[in-house]
Amino acid sequence: ADPCYDEGGAPRGCVPGLVNAALGREVLASSTCGQPATRACDASDPLRAHPATLLTVAGGSASSVCWRSDMLQRVPLNVTLTVALGKAFELVFVSLRFCSAPPASVALLKSQDHGRNWAPLGFFSSHCALDYGRPHAPLDGSGGPGPEALCFPALQAQPDGGGLMAFSVQDGSPPGLDLDSSPVLQDWVTATDIRILLTRPAVPGDTRDLDAIVPYSYSATELQVGGRCKCNGHASRCLLDAQGHLICDCRHGTEGPDCGRCKPFYCDRPWQRATARETHACLACSCNGHARRCRFNMELYRLSGHRSGGVCLNCRHNTAGRHCHYCQEGFYRDPDRSLSDRRACRACDCHPVGAAGKTCNQTTGQCPCKDGVTGLTCNRCALGFQQSRSPVAPCVKTP
């Protein structure tokens, strides 16, 4: 059963399941220990390496080996972890487990354009104003009228010496916003890449003071990016295409990596995201089987009461009109054939001498006859007339 259609075959909104979008993805760390090798870390020795791949490997939580940065001895002590999700996801949460005391300041960023631009999702710091120029988030987690990156209290060390950064996209998003109906919230949760900025280690003293710093390294494991592959309500799963790119398995006449547009022939109404109440499936143009392409016309769509705006292009089989629903000039509808029949339109075949033109009545097929001429194609003289030798007046009254 396809979750995007009900038992009767009618389309309905569908979304991919919640997954860890970072699982198996490459993590780029700005600093990783072991190059050059030290006694504790050697990137070339699998038994003593602490690569960033450990952050997103399956079963990472069970591993006792963590990613570890180089020993940082100079200010600034910034280290970034960046993971490309491969396509747009709608985030639910981001978490990172630290193997040592969690940093005193962490910034969480997202990109929606595969790493070209970055925007903050949230911050964790004991000194929000100092580190990020922001006030501390209200205790109830609420922010302004729209979603915004809030600065939350610093991550706390756990009894085992580690710590957990757990960020929910609801943090920073005002309650009551509905993903279906809020484009602002849809934008807020959408990301193609996640970046975690570790900006201040959990060491005593002022980390802006060079002399106060003791060598320090960040250490973490199990980066999780919980979210749903973004398909705008038009797919229930994502797949790898022939080039290895992650794409939505689009339904409802949609296409694109995120099902973000209508397929070429499915443009009878504008593309819209599916909601719980309305599927907004893209509809095929109504061309009676005589056209393969169509375009959307907003003016016609408005005039139709938001029902149909598709205009068929290149109507074949001698048909014409917005829906290829009538015959081209010089052809008429054969009443014995259905409108979708390839031979629904017959040539007028008006007589070159008896007819006054080449265009017949599109319904009856009657050609316009010269005086005294009769017949569907104007090929006979009427009663009381006889053929003359003049092609201008082919039939004259019988004397």
Partner: peptide, 23 residues
Amino acid sequence: EVMPTLDMALFDWTDYEDLKPEV
């Protein structure tokens, strides 16, 4: 009564050469 179809061979195109249909 059904009249015969127009006989193209009977028409005189002398003065209407430009109107003569291609056969």
